[in-house]
Write a protein that binds this DNA or RNA. Structure first.
Lengths: 264, 264
DNA sequence: AAGTGTGAAGCTGTTCACAGCA
DNA sequence: TGCTGTGAACAGCTTCACACTT
C-alpha cells in the first residue's frame, strides 16, 4: 500500500486508476507467457482467465490505455506486451539498491523477477562491516557508508528496504535525502516520507494474519456447510486436529487480559 | 451493526469489511508497541498516526468490532490488543508449513514476525533430496514426499508456497488435497483452487512495477515531456502495422520494443 | 472539553449489458 | 457472427461532520 501521499490534483487527469495499474503487471505476465508460446492473439476472456480476473474488468482496464484490441478478434499479444510495458515504464532501465542483506535481502538479490523486467540491482548495501565485500548474488556487498554515493553515481530512484524494523526509518531518510523517490519496504514499520516520495509496503506477517482471520471464520461455520462443488478435492479428513475455534462467546470481558501477543 | 455480541450476522454476510480486516494487523502492531511502553490509553488520532492512517478511518474500522472506546478518553490499549487479536484469530495457535526452501523460503523460516503472532512453523518442505535433513532456522528440512502426512499430523490449515513458479500449482494442489484451506503464495503464478480455499499473493516483482509506473510519471512531470529514452528498443513491425493505435503518447520512442521481459 | 461512534455524502472500483465494429 | 469498448447501475470504501457520552 502506498503511503506517501502524492499524485496529481484530480483535475487534468490522464490518470489510470490505481487498481488498474496494480493489475497491469498481472496482464503483462500472462501476455509474456503467451508470447513465448508464439500465440498471436487473445480474447479478453482467455487473457482474463490466465491472469485470474474477469473479462469485463480486463476490458475496462485496457480501455484506459487506449483502444488496442480488434472487435471480433481480440488483442495482438506482442503489441499489448509493448503497450503495457511502456505504460508501466518498463522500457527503460531502473537501477535499484537493496538495503539490508539478511536472509530476505539476499533472497531479493537472487530473485529473478527483478532483473527480468527492467530492474537492475545497482548495489547491495548492509550496515554490518563484516558483510562488506562478501559476494551475494554475484555482487559485492557495500557498506552503508557508501549509500549516498552509490545512489548518486548510479542515478538510483528506487530503493528496497529489507532491514530490521528498527533501522528502516533511518535508512529511508538517507535514501530519500540522497535522491530516492520510490521505496519498497519489507520492514514491519510505518515509514514517514516527505511528499512526493512513494512507499509501498510488503508485510509478510500481515498477510498471514489476514489469512488467519478468514480461516477462523471458516472453522466457525463448518456446521452450516453442506454443499461442495464437484471438482473440489476431498473435504478434508481431520480438521479437528486443531481447535474448532470454539464459539468465541465474547461475553465482552471486563478488561485487559490475555495478551499473548508479542511484538514483531 | 456489529454489536460485538453474536458472531452470526443472521445472513451469511461478511461482517467486517475486507479493507478493515487488512488494517487490523496494522493497528495491532501499533498497539503492541504502545503496550510495551506501558501506555494505558490512546486516542484515535494518536493511534491512527502510529499506524499510518487517518483517524476517521480508524474509528470507523473499530466501530465494526464493537464499541471498545470511551468517549472523551480514547481506547484502552491492552483491551484493544486483546479484542483485535481475538478477532483476527491470533489467540489460537496456527501451524503453518513452508514449501520451497530456497532463498526466500529460508528467509521466511527465519522471519521473526511469524512466530511472534501465533504462527508456528510446523515444517519446512523442499523437493530437493539433498536438502532433506539440513537444518534451516532450527528445523530439519523435510522432503516433499512427506507433505501429506505432515499436514495431517499437525493439523495444518495454512500453507506458504515459496517454490519456483513452475512447481507452485502442483504443490498447491497437494496442499489443498491434504487439507490446507489458506495459502500464501510467493510464486509468481496465478493459482487455481477449489471454492472455499483462500489464496493471498505476494509478488515482489509486481510491487516494483507499480513503483516504476509512478516513478515514470514523476519524471515526466518535472519538465513538460522531455523524457529520457533510457533504453528503448525497437518495435515489432508487425505490431505497429496492425493497429490504429491512435491517441495519447503516440510519438514517444518511435516504436517500441518488445521483449526484454522475461518469465519470472 | 475531549474524543468516540456513526449517518450521510462522496469516491473509487466492479459488474452489467449492449451498441458498434471488424 | 464474435468480441471489443463503454455508459450506466451497482457495490464497497473513505471522508465528513456532528450528535452523543464521559
Amino acid at each position: 500500500m502506498a503511503t506517501g501521499r502524492t499524485h496529481r490534483p484530480a483535475t487534468r487527469s490522464r490518470g489510470i486508476p490505481e487498481a488498474t495499474v496494480a493489475r497491469l503487471p498481472l496482464y503483462l505476465r500472462a501476455l509474456t507467457a503467451l508470447s513465448e508460446r508464439s500465440v498471436p492473439t487473445v480474447s479478453s476472456e482467455e487473457l482474463a482467465t490466465a491472469a485470474g480476473v474477469n473479462s469485463a474488468k480486463l476490458r475496462k482496464d485496457f480501455s484506459y490505455l487506449g483502444s488496442y484490441g480488434t472487435r471480433g478478434v481480440g488483442y495482438d499479444v506482442e503489441y499489448l506486451v509493448y503497450q503495457i510495458s511502456r505504460e508501466l515504464g518498463l522500457t527503460q532501465d531502473w537501477p535499484v539498491v537493496i538495503v539490508g542483506i539478511g536472509n530476505l535481502g539476499a533472497a531479493l538479490a537472487n530473485y529473478g523477477g527483478f532483473a527480468s523486467r527492467g530492474f537492475r540491482v545497482a548495489a547491495l548495501i548492509d550496515a554490518d562491516p563484516a558483510m562488506a565485500g562478501k559476494p551475494v548474488a554475484g555482487l559485492p556487498v557495500r557498506h552503508t557508508d557508501e549509500l549516498e554515493s552509490i545512489i548518486t553515481d548510479n542515478g538510483v530512484s528506487i530503493g528496497v528496504i529489507a532491514t530490521p524494523a528498527g533501522a528502516a526509518q533511518q535508512v529511508c531518510d538517507r535514501l530519500v535525502a540522497a535522491g530516492v523517490t520510490s521505496i519498497l519496504n519489507f520492514a514491519p514499520t510505518v515509514l514517514s516520507v516527505p511528499e512526493g516520495v512513494d512507499v509501498r509496503k510488503v508485510d509478510l506477517s500481515i498477510e498471514l494474519q489476514i489469512l488467519a482471520f478468514h480461516e477462523q471464520r471458516k472453522a466457525g461455520e463448518e456446521t452450516t456447510s453442506a454443499q461442495e462443488p464437484a471438482a473440489a478435492v476431498q473435504p478434508r479428513s481431520s480438521a479437528a486436529a486443531r481447535t474448532p475455534a470454539a464459539g468465541r462467546a465474547a461475553g465482552k470481558g471486563p478488561d485487559g487480559d490475555v495478551p499473548a501477543v508479542m511484538p514483531a
